[in-house]
């Protein structure tokens, strides 16, 4: 039998985005999950990344500038008439 397959913490942190997007190949995803299950450091890293994403998600961007809104509405009314 080959040595029991595993991945290191350093490899885990590079797979986090693929894991969260569910784009890892099945074998890699299962190695990732096995690692997370026994490694507190990586579990906390994954949690930090989820927290990071949700914090970024609290940013909202600027509203439509009023003059753009006016121009677009004018264009819309012309389109509607045509």
């Amino acid at each position: 039998m080959a040595e029991h397959e595993h991945i290191s913490c350093q490899e885990v942190v590079e797979l986090v985005t693929g894991y969260l997007d569910q784009t890892l190949p099945p074998e890699e995803a299962s190695l990732f999950e096995q690692h997370i299950n026994f490694c507190d450091g990586c579990e906390w890293y994954l949690d930090q990344m989820r927290t990071t994403i949700s914090t970024v998600g609290r940013i909202t961007e600027e509203d439509v500038p009023p003059d753009t809104r006016e121009k677009l509405l004018t264009a819309f009314r012309e389109w509607k008439r045509s």
Binding site: S8, C9, Q10, E11, D40, G41, C42, W44, Y45, D47, Q48, T51
Partner: peptide, 13 residues
């Protein structure tokens, strides 16, 4: 233990 954390990242929970 090559590639393992020297010190764990913080527990943000």
């Amino acid at each position: 233990f090559p590639g393992h954390w020297r010190a764990y990242p913080g527990n943000w929970q």
